[in-house]
Design a protein around this nucleic acid. Structure first.
Lengths: 241, 241
DNA sequence: CCAAAAGTGTTTTAGCTACACCCATGA
DNA sequence: TCATGGGTGTAGCTAAAACACTTTTGG
């Protein structure tokens, strides 16, 4: 990719991306017994935002989102799903975008394409926290994990997008096979339980949870064990196939 | 609305609608024991399509979809939900749109904005069949109900959109309260069962279905009865509130 | 031996399935 | 009185909830 292509703010209107169409991703990771999401901070603005981007003129929408995630996390083959389209007029706040453009030392004349109104397609992604190498894009000075209960105020309607992603996931927890994507290949039942609890935001009954998982037939028990704690060593489990 | 505004094909690029953004609706109705959807046919082209449209520059996405449905069915307050965003490059088929524009006697030069690539936000709607007064838009010569098992070949990826709408609805049948939107205020248990069967595309157990509905607490039984058939008169039911 | 966490067993309840049965109606 | 479809009763199965219990480990 040419240097110019790395910075969306330098594009002229409609030159390389579809106008009026954007995407934002809520990227979930699990670490330290907590659910976290990726948040970017823009240079010298104090503005926080979800990692997002734009769709190339000859690029599939889903492919564009994968490209965006690849650039920020280094990962391909990410578990990714559409969540909702945010298309209200009131999400158009050119002052906010102007602030970002100016902070990057670019000319923010009134015709700059980033100042236009955008419809944003929201996605959520589930990724393996430990495999990620974070990289901010050229407009941002950081891309960091934030625990769900410590996400800062985000620009535009991005906090709403996070809520919507959570709701969507909560609805179909089981069929999304949370653990497959958020946990390492092998994990303890406790870890899996914590993932569920983090999404549901409530405690689940330990012994019944264990039985439900085991009888589901989706995971197998490895005889290897994880030692080092002052209690019975737990089995390690992994999902089948 | 001015006359010009009634015909999207007459707009210049970006003059009144957001470029690259469209919507399509799968409108479900229930009649004659069958599930049906609305399909439009374009003048002199043999092309069939889902009712869709574009988003005004100062119009909320959801509002645009409601406007589109109002124009074609005369109904406001329609039950409406997003379903999926179709954003692949291969759905861009300018030849098809060119055909429609020409058949309407308009100039289809290569820069016509309808020939651009569009991302389409798919919605599904559940409406009360008997309340609808169908009206084609200015580009179409008909807007008709088609039984789900008799939907013709539609343009672009519109058949795929129908499939996606069905899948989405099937997943959460119960929480969508199908009957509330698809049936008249009062209905027999048989009708409600037929709605479920139409969506699931399989028979459900009559007596157990009845019990499940009654114990759900979502509907009440009216003592009024529907007479005229050679069998026990069924109760009429209605949803609470 | 004790505390802590993992894992198993058991009882109760709730809901669904399948099927038998009775009821009301028009021809 | 019979065919047709509406409505109820009930036995059997399965899954989840609640809780008591045993096991393994480090200190």
């Amino acid at each position: 990719m040419a240097k110019q292509k790395d910075n969306p703010a330098e594009y002229k209107r409609g030159e390389s991306y579809l106008t009026h169409v954007a995407f934002d991703s809520v990227v979930f990771g699990f670490s330290g017994e907590k659910l976290k999401i990726l948040v970017m901070e823009y240079h010298n603005t104090g503005l926080f935002a979800l990692p997002g981007g734009f769709v190339g003129l000859k690029e599939n929408l889903n492919a564009a989102v994968r490209r965006g995630l690849k650039e920020r996390t280094g990962l391909s083959n990410i578990y990714l799903e559409q969540c909702y389209v945010f298309g209200d007029v009131k999400r158009h706040q050119p002052e906010v975008l102007r602030k970002i453009i100016k902070a990057n030392g670019l000319a923010a004349d009134d015709k700059h394409w980033l100042l236009d109104r955008f419809i944003s397609v929201a996605y959520y992604a589930l990724i393996n926290y430990s495999k990620v190498k974070l990289q901010p894009d050229t407009l941002s000075d950081s891309c960091e994990w934030y625990a769900l209960d410590a996400v800062p105020k985000l620009m535009l309607d991005h906090n709403l997008i996070v809520q919507k992603a959570l709701e969507t996931l909560r609805k179909n927890l089981d069929e999304k096979l949370l653990g497959t994507n958020l946990l390492p290949l092998q994990f303890t039942m406790k870890q899996l339980q914590q993932v569920y609890e983090a999404f549901l935001d409530e405690k689940v009954h330990r012994t019944n949870f264990q039985r439900r998982m085991l009888t589901s037939g989706l995971l197998i028990r490895n005889e290897k064990q994880f030692l080092g704690k002052a209690h019975k060593a737990p089995y390690l489990y992994q999902f089948i196939k």
